[in-house]
Amino acid sequence: MRLGLALGYWGAGPDPAAAERVAAAEDLGFDSIWTAEAYGSDALTPLAWLGARTSRVRLGTSVVQMSARTPTATAMAALTLDHLSGGRMVLGIGASGPQVVEGWYGQPYPKPLARTREYVQILRSAFARERVEFAGEHYAIPHPGGAGLGKPLRPTVHPLRTDLPILLAAEGPKNVALAAEIADGWQPLFYAPRHDAFYRDCLTEGFARSGARRTADDFEVVCMVQVVVDEDVDAAADRIRPMLALYIGGMGAKGVNFHYDVFARMGYEDECARIQESYLAGRKDEAAAAVPLSMVEQIALVGPRGKIAEELDSWRNSLVTTMVVGGGRAELEVVAELVG
């Protein structure tokens, strides 16, 4: 199991310690660094800025939101960054959710699986430096209307790698299976080793489909895992609870929240309902307090060093091939020592 550094997306502004954390991760032998985007900072600019200070680590997006850019614009960015980094770019993409897609990007959300399939096909065509011509339900290149002067084009840039890896962020079983079918890897957001069998079944379904790109042997699973080292387990969990309350309670509408669904499938349906009710009513502290310790421990590593060492075994034996660590320098050093 390799290690990555989670840089995430910005809150009100950039993390002043980001450059220091990136340098520490590379010094500690981490394999990769990963940026994200929601509806504030974008994923690509910080990745290029911070990646320029590195020489070895892979540079990944976790994730680029598909509705933020046309497929060809995403392909241009990936090709550019792959050249600038000497072939270290890993393109993680995701459909996001209706709240962001329609509320921020002003794009329609329905049929996300079909849109993802088309998006990836166009990316592959651009990475292969083919003339991009596509007539789908969601994307049409060249545009079929307008001035009527569009013609199929291919990138002027000669790709450094025509097989630049595409990873797919997915939470629902159908989307996880799609990742196994069309992508080079899967990026879960909230993954629990205790439910490993469920996700293995989803991936197996995708690998079995005609034309599947990969097999279980050469497929990446890149998972963010928050790590908090503290002698007080509950105090450590308190640093994770507000984030879980946000995602379960507020990242999506009532009845259409994929993060909520992940934890409900783990057996926390009643807890999720309480968290969401409190969060949507504006009682955020109450929502965070409703997150049980066991829920935090499903998807994060919290507590004393010895406890984290014991619990790492379940991650080593899971589907995860790269653990993307969220935490400060102390957490990076502990995990590097324990995994290395």
Rank of each mutant, 00 (worst) to 15 (best):
R2D: 11
A6S: 12
A6I: 09
W10H: 14
G11Q: 10
A12K: 14
G13A: 15
G13T: 02
P14M: 08
P14N: 05
A19M: 13
A25N: 01
E26M: 01
T35W: 09
A36G: 01
E37T: 01
G40A: 12
S41G: 03
S41I: 01
S41E: 02
A48P: 02
W49R: 12
L50M: 02
R53N: 00
S55Y: 00
T61K: 04
V63L: 09
V64I: 13
M66L: 13
A68G: 14
R69S: 09
T74E: 00
M76V: 05
M76S: 15
A78M: 02
L81F: 03
H83A: 08
L84F: 10
G87Q: 05
V90K: 06
G94L: 07
A95S: 14
S96I: 15
S96C: 07
P98D: 10
P98V: 07
Q99S: 14
V100M: 09
V100W: 14
E102K: 00
G103I: 14
W104H: 15
W104T: 11
Q107E: 08
P108E: 01
A114E: 10
T116N: 08
T116W: 03
R117Y: 13
L123V: 03
R129V: 00
R131M: 08
R131L: 10
E133L: 02
A135S: 11
E137I: 01
Y139N: 05
A140C: 06
G146I: 04
A147Y: 09
L149K: 12
G150Y: 00
G150N: 00
R154E: 01
T156K: 12
H158T: 15
H158N: 09
R161Y: 07
T162A: 14
P165H: 03
L167C: 10
A170R: 03
G172C: 10
N175T: 10
A183P: 06
D184Y: 10
W186T: 11
W186L: 12
Q187F: 01
P188C: 08
P193M: 09
H195P: 06
D196S: 10
A197R: 15
R200F: 14
E205F: 09
R209T: 05
T215K: 01
T215A: 11
D218H: 00
M224H: 11
V225K: 11
Q226F: 13
V227H: 11
V233H: 07
V233F: 03
R241K: 14
L244V: 15
L246P: 00
G249L: 03
G250I: 07
K254C: 03
V256P: 07
N257M: 04
F263W: 04
M266H: 13
E269N: 06
Q276L: 08
Q276S: 15
S278E: 11
S278F: 11
R283A: 03
R283Q: 05
K284N: 12
K284Y: 15
E286G: 13
A287W: 06
A288D: 10
V291N: 02
S294V: 11
S294K: 11
S294G: 09
E297Y: 02
I299G: 06
I299A: 08
G306E: 08
K307R: 15
I308G: 03
A309K: 04
W315T: 02
R316I: 03
S318R: 03
S318D: 02
T322P: 08
T322K: 00
M323P: 11
V324M: 05
V324H: 00
R329C: 13
E333T: 13
V335A: 05
V335F: 04
A336C: 05
